[in-house]
């Protein structure tokens, strides 16, 4: 499958078209899923920076495991949660390539928490893309480490009870206690403006890696309409009204220093 281009017949300036680094095929993602948007943004950034041919992605276990069907670059699967360890192995062996890991909340903040923290703490020169949609998607909507208090999931049927199930883990804040990361930012796919910020954040992170700046993590609050049990529109509203109050947006780490 190659990324074929539909050339416009009439002369004009293209304001937006499908990025070249995105393979021309339909995704398996559900309608309104933020993974599609995130894939698109990554592809756009690979195009903008002209790094598709030197980029190696690491796809996790979860909905994004089939990233190799959609992103037109070299990609390796990783065992659940081990994504940053695999990315570390690749980057250390090929330091002049661009390496990113693409992880969901279960992969990054539950089973892979140790790998997440230690890759950040070593300041690995990789870009971690963290899709936080507050639930486990592929396995059927179970409670995630980032599920909101009171949020109903398959494994918190009466809502997440903080007394016995803990509270949502804020990864950006947690990693910002470390000295080594270079850039940490949280964005949200809840509006066109939010998506533009997400694109910009990814651009900063990948560009930083190209310049050898070190570890960057972009947390993307993302809709999972099916398992949020909402329509795509309402899932986006849930990000704004439910998730952002629990996961404040912004740049936490800039140029290697915490943002006050």
């Amino acid at each position: 499958m190659s990324a074929t281009r539909i050339r416009p017949k009439k002369k004009g300036r293209i304001l937006y078209r499908r990025p070249l680094s995105l393979v021309d095929r339909a995704t398996h993602f559900c309608p309104g899923c933020g993974h599609g948007t995130t894939h698109k943004l990554i592809a756009e950034v690979l195009d903008t920076l002209k790094i598709r041919e030197k980029t190696i992605g690491v796809a996790p276990v979860g909905c994004a495991v089939m990233a190799y069907y959609y992103l037109n670059c070299d990609i390796s699967e990783a065992a659940h949660g081990r994504t940053p360890a695999v990315a570390t192995g690749i980057k250390r062996c090929l330091p002049d390539r661009i390496v990113f890991s693409y992880q969901g909340d279960g992969d990054l903040a539950a089973i892979g928490m140790a790998e997440t923290i230690h890759a950040a703490n070593r300041g690995e020169n990789i870009t971690v893309i963290f899709v936080n949609n507050s639930v486990y998607g592929m396995t059927g909507g179970q409670m995630a480490p980032t599920t909101l208090n009171g949020q109903k999931t398959a494994t918190s049927p009466c809502g997440r009870d903080s007394r016995s199930m803990g509270t949502p883990i804020r990864i950006c804040e947690l990693l910002n206690t470390l000295d080594s990361p270079w850039h940490i930012e949280r964005v949200a796919l809840n509006s066109p403006a939010g998506i533009r910020k997400a694109r910009k954040a990814l651009l900063v992170a990948f560009k930083g890696q190209m310049e050898g700046k070190g570890y960057s993590l972009i947390e993307i609050l993302s809709p999972c309409p099916v398992h949020m049990r909402l329509s795509p529109r309402d899932a986006v509203r849930f990000i704004t009204e439910g998730m952002i109050p629990a996961f404040p947006l912004g740049v936490f780490r800039k140029e290697g220093k915490p943002v006050a």
Partner: peptide, 21 residues
Amino acid sequence: IGCMNCSDMCPDAAIEIQKRL
């Protein structure tokens, strides 16, 4: 008005926008 809200928002990259001459 060519604001690109729709194309940015589309999870399936299914929208293309062109400004005509």
